[in-house]
C-alpha cells in the first residue's frame, strides 16, 4: 500500500535525510538557546535603569540583533558562505548549514528572551537586591528561573522555525529532508518524495511542540 502511494521513495535515503534534519535542528537549537540567552540577558541588563545599565552596549547589541533578525534567511546563507568555508572547511552538508542556522536564529531568540525578562515583576528583582544578592545570583536564580516558561515557549517556537530553516538550507545543498524534497522530489518531478519529506517534517514539528508544551507545563507554577 505504502509502496504504491510513494513509488519513488528510497526509505533508506529518507531515513538518512530525516536524521540529518534532526541533527541540524538539535545542534542549532542548542547553540541558539545558549547564544540567544546570553544576548537577551545582556540586552536586558544593559537596558535603562537595569543592573548593568549601559547605553552604548545596549544600542550595539540591539542593532546587531535587529539587523541579523531582519536579513532573510536564504540571503543570510549566501552572505555567510565565506565565513562557513573558513569555519567548517566546506559549504556542503549538515555541518555547513549550522553557522547560518545559528546566526539566523540566535538574534530572533534573543528578542524573545528580552521580552520574557521584561515581563518579570521589577519588585522581585528589587527584593533579591534587598537580600544582598549578587548580580550572578539575580541572573540565574531570579531572572532565568522566573521567566523559564516564557524562555521555553520561545525556544520551542525558535526550534520549529529552525526546522523550516534547515529545509531552506537543504535547497542549497545542506542535506536533510529539504535537499531530498527539492532535488529528488521537485527537480525530478517525483511529488511522492516531496510529500513524504513534508509529512516527516510535520511529524518533527509536532514532536518539538509536544516536548515544549510538556516542559512549559512542568515549570509554570503561576
Amino acid at each position: 500500500m505504502i509502496e504504491n502511494l510513494f513509488p519513488h521513495v528510497d526509505w533508506e535515503k529518507m531515513w538518512e535525510a530525516t536524521q540529518q534534519t534532526l541533527y541540524m535542528t538539535a545542534v542549532s537549537t542548542f547553540f541558539t538557546f545558549v547564544i540567544g540567552l546570553a544576548l537577551g540577558v545582556l540586552l536586558f541588563l544593559s537596558g535603562p535603569r537595569q543592573l548593568w545599565s549601559n547605553k552604548i552596549v545596549n544600542v550595539i547589541i540591539g542593532a546587531i540583533v535587529n539587523v541579523y533578525r531582519s536579513i532573510p534567511f536564504i540571503i543570510l546563507i549566501i552572505l555567510l558562505i565565506p565565513f562557513t568555508k573558513f569555519l567548517i572547511g566546506t559549504i556542503r552538508g549538515p555541518d555547513a548549514a549550522l553557522p547560518a542556522l545559528i546566526i539566523g536564529a540566535a538574534p530572533f531568540y534573543a528578542r524573545m528572551v528580552l521580552i520574557a525578562l521584561q515581563e518579570i515583576d521589577k519588585g522581585v528583582i528589587e527584593a533579591a537586591k534587598s537580600m544582598g544578592a549578587k548580580t550572578r545570583t539575580i541572573i540565574f536564580k531570579v531572572l532565568l528561573a522566573e521567566s523559564m516558561p516564557a524562555l521555553l515557549s520561545g525556544i520551542t517556537v525558535t526550534a520549529i522555525a529552525l526546522v523550516g530553516y534547515t529545509a531552506m538550507a537543504g535547497a542549497i545543498g545542506a542535506g536533510g529532508l529539504g535537499t531530498l524534497a527539492y532535488f529528488e522530489g521537485f527537480q525530478r518531478n517525483r511529488n511522492d518524495i516531496t510529500i513524504m519529506a513534508t509529512i516527516l517534517i510535520l511529524i518533527i514539528v509536532f514532536i518539538i511542540q509536544f516536548i515544549g508544551d510538556v516542559l512549559i507545563k512542568r515549570f509554570d507554577k503561576r
Binding site: D121, A127, A128, G132, A133, K134, K141, F219, K221
Partner: peptide, 25 residues
C-alpha cells in the same frame, strides 16, 4: 531586610524555597 506591599515572592519557588532564598544568598 525588607518586606513589600506586593510581597515580591518568587513564584517559581515554594514557600520553603522562598524563605530559604536569602539563606542561599
Amino acid at each position: 531586610s525588607m518586606i513589600f506591599q506586593h510581597f515580591n515572592l518568587l513564584w517559581s519557588r515554594t514557600v520553603k524555597e522562598n524563605i530559604g532564598f536569602p539563606l542561599e544568598i
